[in-house]
Design a protein around this nucleic acid. Structure first.
Length: 461
RNA sequence: GCGGGUAUAGUUUAGUGGCAGAAUGUAUCCUUCCCAAGGAUGAGAUGCGGGUCCGAUUCCCGCUACCCGCACCA
């Protein structure tokens, strides 16, 4: 069996109604995809499993669904505005980055004579002016000394927008780049409503937006993405224990989706590569067709966010232990799960090419509990009214029970099997002449292609 | 964002400065007692915008999207 490529997966996804290029009839929009009927069902099965596992089945995690648009002060406080809106020079040699305005200003102070001699425009913090200063003054990298500083790069990765019809500085807001802040700003609300014991968590599933420089690899890097995130609040002394537990839960969740353990790798992230809020990070990576890449992240956000918000908002965000001991700001363990990446990993894992009767067959070996269609009902022959009528009845019965049941009487039975194989339907149920005699049906298994007879009651169970 | 490549039907693809062809899928009908059988009929394509030309899907330019490197990825 040859390696499955991302293009094979994208082609199948489109052909069978899982995913389409966003805004396709207008030439597309980079980094956006639209979920088709089967794709949204598969995705929803996965997010539902997550919600059940981490919210419904637990009594220490509370669900939320917070607004995508938030007061701009949230993003100033969280560090997302200042950390990512600044003009930067990047050194082509050592790859370090520097605040362009700061670098130019200190350079001007230190090299007053050259500056006076040079023909420079009036100083201002525009990228064009900063570039002119850098080039005219032959500025070098403060770290390695090479004269390889790039022109100004703006790493403002948040989508900026305006709330209300008037576009001025006070109306600025951003599409959230992470769902986390919605949970931090509601920490006090949930504590006041439910007075939970520590440790406890907040969870939500929702869209986040990142103005990626280069969206890439089908739905792996999107500008509009979906996250399943938990902010788990702990006593600072216990962070490590919780961290390791959540890491293991992330691995277990992937294995519940049928991913092989051998393709899951948990990798500690060095201080250089960590997010600005994180004191310890471990990525859960997966062997995608295009390489080993990040699927999930787990970060120890300390009390960074709650402390910042307490300071900026003036609201007390401390946790008050019920034993009367001193209030404190809890620390946070944040396991975050990318929805789109999970779907991609699941499809990549399930995508199989094998041989049936000497012919290649594409089959999505999805675990039954997340398959978008659970079973397909067919009359053996569609020109035999008695078969069709009985099949229709059985279809109605099974659909009422299971919901995700499909009817197919197109072509011959082999074609229907192949079509269902491609969308990962675990069982095909065929109503044949024996059904008319004893009520049993043929059930064909997706993975083995083997058939056996079963009663309707067995299928209802 | 930089460099390179690609763009023809839902999918996979052929071809051409002068009517765009196939396979497969798909629709309707016939046929069919179990793994893409067969027959008939039908719908369906040159990414978008400009230029050259009598005429552009083909040549040129721009844009967009996708793919491959690099960089980026809170």
């Amino acid at each position: 069996m040859s390696e499955v490529t991302l293009e094979d997966i994208a082609s199948l996804a489109k052909r069978r109604g899982f995913l389409y290029q966003g805004s396709e009839i207008y030439g597309g929009l980079a980094g956006t995809y639209d979920w088709g009927p089967l794709g949204v069902q598969l995705k929803r099965n996965i997010t539902n499993l997550w919600w059940k596992t981490f919210v419904e089945d637990r009594d220490d995690v509370f669900g939320l669904d917070t607004a995508i648009l938030m007061n701009q002060k949230v993003w100033q406080t969280s560090g997302h505005v200042s950390g990512f809106n600044d003009p930067l020079f990047e050194c082509g040699n050592c790859r370090n980055r520097f605040r362009a305005d700061h670098l130019v200003e200190t350079w001007v102070e230190k090299h007053a004579k050259e500056v006076k001699a040079a023909d420079l425009p009036k100083y201002e913090q525009s990228p064009a002016t900063l570039n002119v200063y850098k080039n005219t003054l032959n500025m070098t990298c403060p770290t390695c000394g090479k004269q390889e500083l790039s022109d100004v790069k703006q790493f403002n990765m948040m989508f900026k927008t305006h709330v209300g019809a008037v576009e001025d500085e006070t109306s600025v807001s951003y599409l959230r780049p992470e769902t986390a802040q919605g949970m931090f700003v509601n920490f006090k609300n949930v504590v006041d409503s439910f007075y939970p014991d520590l440790p406890f968590g907040l969870a939500q599933i929702g869209k986040a937006f990142r103005n990626e420089i280069a969206p890439r690899d089908f739905i792996f890097r999107l500008r509009e993405l979906e996250q399943m995130e938990i902010e788990f609040f702990v006593h600072p002394e216990n962070w490590r224990e919780s961290f390791d537990i959540w890491l293991e839960r992330q691995r277990q969740f992937l294995m519940n989706l049928g991913l092989p353990e051998s393709k899951i790798h948990q990798v500690e992230i060095g201080p250089e590569d960590r997010a600005h809020y994180s004191k310890h990070s471990v990525d859960t990576e997966f062997d995608f067709p295009f390489g080993q890449k990040e699927l999930y992240g787990c970060a120890y956000r300390t009390d960074y966010d709650l402390s910042k918000h307490q300071e900026a908002s003036g609201k007390n965000l401390e946790y008050r232990p019920k034993d009367g001991s001193a209030p404190f700001i809890p620390h946070v363990i944040e396991p975050t799960f990318g929805v789109d990446r999970t779907v991609l990993a699941v499809i990549a894992t399930a995508y199989t090419v094998d041989t049936v009767n000497g012919e290649d067959r594409i089959v999505l070996k999805l675990p039954e509990h997340i398959a978008p269609v659970k079973m397909c009902i067919s009359p053996l022959l569609k020109n035999k009214p008695e078969l069709v009528a009985t099949a229709r009845e059985i279809y109605a019965t099974l659909k009422k029970k299971h919901g995700a049941v499909m009817w197919d009487d197109n072509g011959n039975i082999g074609k229907r099997y192949r079509r269902q194989d491609e969308i990962g339907t675990p069982k095909c149920v065929v109503i044949d002449f024996q059904t008319l005699e004893d009520g049993t049906v043929t059930v064909r298994d997706r993975d083995t292609t083997e058939q056996h007879r079963a009663t309707i009651d067995e299928l209802l169970g």
